[in-house]
Design a protein around this nucleic acid. Structure first.
Lengths: 255, 255
DNA sequence: GCAAAAGTGTTAAAGCTACACCCATGA
DNA sequence: TCATGGGTGTAGCTTTAACACTTTTGC
């Protein structure tokens, strides 16, 4: 093989696509943007865009994220849990020759876990953006189109990418402290439990959950404050501790 | 944003690189090839090559694998454990602008777990290939350069890619049945245990290990045969069962 | 017989599940 | 006072870790 010669390899376009997840009103939601151009004009799609010539992949993902949502990724490049800051990590790369009808595009998908935000901000190019429950985007389960939520089909292979991202999030909160990335900087044990319940779609025993998370060293750090924002007896407030790997892991009940 | 215009995005070269792991003489080893050209001429590197214009990413990885080793990936595209067939899955994508001094190259790394093979086969382009213990390639631990093994520095960012692949393999055999991909089609419980010990670098209790793997439904299927190839009392032979996820997982002892 | 590897039994500690029960607030 | 969510105690079960012990081969 001779040294790199333009004739040796076909040129590719490289993009980043973002699976941005949050928990809103006890449901796992993903950020979707409306496409303004063909193909799939008017369809919902994942946010994303081209990687620039001088840009790292994680850097491109962080830039797209802030352009689309105003969110700042806490640490592009490495998985770092941080309550109140968005977590960003690489998800997988999609390169089917037919995934874009116009040209050869390889997309490096990234996964973002964000706390609940006031409202999504549409990009500068006037496309609209919304948080949609993942089940309505994936056609998953019986509630796929309930409550006036429209079941939609995402553009390109974005349905597959979203499904992979959701699966990654579901399994990762099991053995890491990443669930705190869905929470505000200070949160209660009950709020953290509702995150697990929304992401997994199951009910957890509040008493055993409380014992488990407070008993796992490094997971939660009490701030000393309390809150009654959920009603009932005042609850202690916590910040995310430094631990990233949970040992033993949280146990996801059988489905 | 206007429809795709060649001026909108810079062209990238897209390659696949392979982390091919096997267990030889109770050590976790990776396949390395000698570079025949600049830069890093004469250095060791991971096998890999350009993705073709009409080719899927997993297809390119499978093609490179068979070109370099003669191995057939059992199921390119999906993680499927199979004793006797190589397992192939996507690992991660590396796209630092400076990772290749000549041009912008994005590499989609793949992870291959293979049973011990007679000998690596050099590619058609006369580059030499060898199995090297991962610790000698990573500079890991006290045995990094023992036994006449030369500690080497891999070309480009391949050291980082290899480290990520090894870490993926180490964690994945914990909760999946992938360790069987390192075994021949029929194997004993002791042989499987030595795989875990080599990959994790720890000693496991043979009695508890035996109970655990034979008691996990779907992990192992007895073939009825026995062998004494390891010496001592004849051991039952097993094939990999259909289960891919182990519940409960194998427990990796604390380090 | 002896070494070596396979495989079974047993026991104590640790972890999990389920649920009874009490606590502190707002309405 | 009542509803609501927060938090503790505890009994029973399952899983794990450590190790004694038996089995079946090759030499």
């Amino acid at each position: 093989m001779s040294p790199y010669d333009p004739a040796d390899f076909p040129p590719f376009a490289v993009t980043v696509d973002l699976v941005v997840l949050t928990v809103r009103r006890d449901a796992l939601c993903a950020l979707a943007v409306r496409r303004g151009e063909s193909p799939f004009q008017g369809c919902w799609a994942l946010p994303g865009g081209f990687v620039r010539a001088d840009e790292d992949l994680a850097g491109a993902a962080g830039r797209e994220l802030s352009e689309e949502t105003g969110l700042l990724a806490y640490d592009p490049g490495g998985p770092v849990p941080a309550a109140g800051g968005a977590h960003l990590e690489q998800l997988a790369t999609y390169g089917d020759p037919a995934r874009d009808p116009r040209m050869r595009v390889v997309s490096v998908a990234h996964l973002v876990l964000a706390p609940d935000l006031p409202a999504p901000r549409a990009g500068g190019d006037a496309r609209s953006a919304r948080w949609a429950p993942v089940e309505s985007l994936l056609g998953e389960g019986p509630g796929a189109a309930r409550d006036g939520e429209q079941a939609v089909r995402l553009a390109f292979d974005h349905g597959r990418i979203l499904a992979d991202g959701v699966e990654r999030a579901r399994s990762k909160i099991e053995y890491s402290s990443l669930a705190t990335a869905f929470c505000p900087p200070e949160f209660t044990v009950g709020e953290l439990r509702r995150v697990y319940e929304a992401v997994w779609g199951v009910a957890l025993d509040p008493r055993n959950f409380h014992r488990k998370v407070t008993g796992t060293p490094g997971f939660l750090v009490p701030t000393g404050g309390t809150t009654t924002r959920q009603g009932g007896r005042p609850a202690q407030l916590f910040r995310a501790g430094g631990a990233t790997l949970l040992n033993p892991p949280m146990l996801r009940p059988e489905v």
